[in-house]
């Protein structure tokens, strides 16, 4: 019995130490685990011109301007914005008001020149009819900060924004 108790304490203590060590390590690694910078991250910690990194956020409504293969749009996180220019094929889910992650570098004018563009979608799934009726009833708030009071359960996710 005592041996079993000792083993129990020993294993539990080891796991506790391991958990603490992992938490500390993840905290220290911090930013290196970020897959992309938001426009606000970029404003806080500027990246040198020409250095390669990823920029992510929402494609600002009405900002997409296609001219042949080249497309210009603005990435926003509702606080800050960065203009982006990209030449190439866009993913099927690339739309205004939807999430996007671009990889490239800043040029001299402060425009982000993207080498590739990935679409980032949110965690909401619903049939088109439900989405349409939400829009009709005014519960739809793309990019807003949370569901309005009394929104139906299905709308809760639909109106949530990226953080």
């Amino acid at each position: 019995m005592t041996r079993k108790k000792r083993r129990l304490y020993f294993v539990s203590l080891g796991l506790l130490a391991l958990g603490a060590a992992t938490a500390l390590m993840l905290g220290a690694m911090g930013d290196s685990l970020l897959y992309f910078y938001s426009p606000s991250d970029l404003a806080e910690r500027p990246v040198a011109e020409g250095q390669r990194f990823r920029l992510g956020g929402l494609v600002e409504e009405g900002s997409v301007d296609k001219a042949g293969d080249t497309v210009r749009f603005v990435v926003t996180d509702m606080v800050n914005t960065v203009p982006v220019v990209y030449t190439g094929i866009l993913p099927d889910l690339f739309r205004e008001g939807q999430g996007v992650v671009t990889e490239g570098h800043l040029d001299a004018g402060g425009t982000f020149s993207a080498a590739n563009v990935l679409a980032k979608h949110d965690e909401t799934y619903m049939p088109k009819e439900v989405a349409d009726s939400l829009k009709d009833s005014g519960y739809w708030q793309e990019g807003a900060d949370g569901p309005p009071a009394g929104a139906p359960a299905a709308a809760q996710g639909a109106v949530r924004a990226y953080q």
Binding site: Y35, F36, G56, G99, V101, L118, K120, H121, D122, E123, T124, Y125, M126, P127, V130, A153, A154, Q156, G157, A158, R160
Partner: peptide
């Protein structure tokens, strides 16, 4: 790039799937 969880049994976000 991966979106957050759609099904959260606990927490305020609930279920974001029809």
């Amino acid at each position: 790039l991966h979106q957050p969880a759609s099904v959260n049994p606990v927490g305020d976000s609930g279920i974001a799937i029809d």
